[in-house]
Write a protein that binds this DNA or RNA. Structure first.
Lengths: 116, 116
DNA sequence: ATAGGCACTTCGAAAATCAAAGCGACAGTG
DNA sequence: CACTGTCGCTTTGATTTTCGAAGTGCCTAT
């Protein structure tokens, strides 16, 4: 810490970074980060995501997709068929997060022990 | 065969990014991201973190610190006083995550609606 | 007609998180 | 010395989240 500071730096954003907190009120929910990451290679349907992600339950996936859409990170597009198909895709805001996710993935490869 | 995809290699690696999944099995837990972020400006004690983070309960903070330590992202250092004091600090692996967290924080400021 | 896929929703059970209180050690005050 | 307060946790229910399996409605292929 600061060696010679009589002042309180506590009021700074040093600790309690509001933006990070905000980000993790989303990303800190199970699967939301992975869902976003799964969308980076292009739009996908519900079932496709469900199978790709492996471990997430339908109900939670549904929740996460709804919440991410509500937050404007992804969009739900319905293509009236006749075979009606639904697809989820990243918005600009969602895309903007991809570099960070890629960085996290790279970090995990280097610094996170393998599962097992 | 499916009407849309002529061929999906997508299922292979693009989706289901293992590293990202691994990362979020940690960061996807409530508060772990914020705890790490709080440590980026230097070591801190339990009570200090507890107050800085605002919202986390002691029991969860305790859990997160233990888990992050177990994963090698932070270290717990005890300074035998007499006034015994404990402090938590980022390891190299933990430090290596900071750029990503900063990027996420920046992203949140630009793309995440304010708390309200 | 039977079977299967898609996009979800519903439901009960298990797990995670919460807020509050408690504990042992120590320090400061009167 | 008793009393209050801080630190670093742990324990104890209550509340919330997540899980996993099954069900629904629609459409298509056999």
């Amino acid at each position: 810490m600061a060696t010679t500071s009589p002042r309180t730096e506590v009021d700074e954003c040093a600790r309690g970074d509001a933006a990070l907190t905000r980000a993790f009120s989303l990303l800190g929910k199970r699967w939301s980060g992975v869902v976003l990451g799964s969308l980076k290679s292009g739009p996908a349907g519900f079932r496709e995501l469900s199978r790709a992600i492996d471990g997430v339950s339908d109900s939670v996936l549904s929740d996460r997709l709804a919440e991410l859409a509500r937050q404007g990170l992804i969009v739900r597009a319905v293509d009236a068929g006749p075979p009606v198909s639904v697809s989820y895709a990243l918005t600009d805001a969602g895309q903007a997060l991809m570099p960070a996710l890629e960085q996290i993935a790279r970090w995990a490869q280097e610094h996170l022990p393998e599962p097992g």
